[in-house]
Amino acid sequence: MEEAINQLEAALLSVDSISSEEILNKHRNIPPIELIEQLVMPVLDRIGSGWEKGTVALSQVYMSGKFIEEWVDTILPSGDPNRKYQPKLAIAVLEDYHMLGKRIVYSVLRASSFDLKDYGHISVRELVTKVKEDKIEVLLISTLMLPSALKVRELKDELIKTNSKVKIIVGGAPFRFDDKLWNEVGADAMALDAYDSINIIEKIMEEKK
């Protein structure tokens, strides 16, 4: 599988969807969840690590996540019972139209067999209502602008007022440039990249068991 991982990583970073699809299709005989765990997730992990180290660009992270998400949907559609046991997940951007980070995290999570709600661009008040209505257990907030990151504090305070136990995972540029900011705004964790958010969600799932 190591060779396939190397090949798929190279094809995805070159934004070569034809080769990527060929490599994935060669392994269609493996059950979907196993294929995702053995091939897809290690590749996404490597790409995420490359982004953290500065050797992979954001456009490559986005294009590979999008491609893999679409491919995984063909073998494991949304709602398929074989998708992972998971907490109720949602992702949002607070009062900002910068959606790329959210789109990347959404794709990588879905490509890794998670299902999640996408609340898009939303106000604090609307988000509090949605979290309650949908009984969300883990909420991911993607940010690009500092004011949007600081709004997480307001969100957290409002959620506390409703006795919500939702765990908040934040990510994006303001949190990368200030590694103490996530704690200051009351988040439960900060994800360095999309793949890191999977590790955090899995940790939360372990704690809930």
Binding site: V15, S59, Y62, M63, Y97, H98, M99, L100, R103
Partner: peptide
């Protein structure tokens, strides 16, 4: 265009 739509266009 928005960030993701622009990257799509670029490629």
């Amino acid at each position: 265009l928005g960030f993701s739509s622009y990257i799509d266009l670029m490629y």
